[in-house]
């Protein structure tokens, strides 16, 4: 009996040691990594100290600090440009990443700021290799919107790289637009359009 017990103990101990040595990315699950990001962003949006137009810059920088931990913006920049990414140099890539991240901030965070009473419910999760899709239901004043987050395990944990609502994917939509612009006006033209769009957002008032 004691023999069996000691064997079991050894097995458990080994199991524990192995588990604790394995990478954190392997054990963490996508929903649990997404939750603090969304909660953190909502906490700032609903926080009255950061409300209003005059607080916009401060509020946005706080939100983006959290977003940078939960979203993989450089992956998104690569994916959204597709083949064009290969044709531009490091400096252009850096510029594009900045502009596109700013656009996502304006579009996604800007839209979230309209929804001040929202609750997010996590309804499902699919994992396939290094990719995952987390399904959520966003409820805001009686309206329910299914928002799915597409995530990738980039080595530093699960990061969001696309958002899907009713089959419509944010990144794919921008990808189609960018492709059309690059085709006609080259990369330089795209940069110009991005700069104009971001300027449009910074001129408008929110909330």
């Amino acid at each position: 009996m004691t023999r069996i017990r000691s064997i079991l103990l050894t097995v458990f101990a080994t199991f524990f040691v192995v588990c604790s040595f394995s990478s954190p990315a392997l054990s963490a699950d996508p929903t649990e990594e997404l939750r603090p990001t969304l909660d953190g962003i909502m906490a700032i949006i609903t926080n009255q100290t950061f409300a209003g137009d005059e607080q916009k810059a401060l509020r946005r920088s706080k939100i983006m600090d959290i977003a940078h931990r939960g979203f993989d913006f450089s992956m998104m920049s690569k994916l959204v440009l597709g083949r064009t990414w290969k044709t531009i140099d490091a400096q252009q890539r850096k510029l594009f990443e900045e502009l596109f991240t700013k656009l996502l901030e304006n579009a996604y965070i800007g839209k979230l700021e309209d929804y001040t009473g929202q609750v997010t419910k996590y309804t499902g999760e699919r994992v396939k290799g290094k990719k995952a899709e987390v399904s959520t239901l966003m409820e805001n004043n009686g309206l329910t919107l299914p928002v799915n987050y597409i995530m990738i395990d980039n080595g530093a944990g699960w990061k969001v790289y696309d958002i899907k609502i009713e089959g419509v994917r944010l990144l794919r939509n921008y990808r189609a637009q960018f492709k059309s612009i690059v085709k006609k006006e080259k990369f330089e033209g795209l940069v110009q359009v991005l700069e104009e769009k971001n300027a449009e957002f910074s001129n408008e008032s929110t909330m």
Binding site: A176, Q177, V193
Partner: peptide, 11 residues
């Protein structure tokens, strides 16, 4: 939210 509304709507 779009840079080319025509393409965005098509997609």
């Amino acid at each position: 939210y779009s840079l080319d509304p025509y393409v965005s709507m098509r997609q």
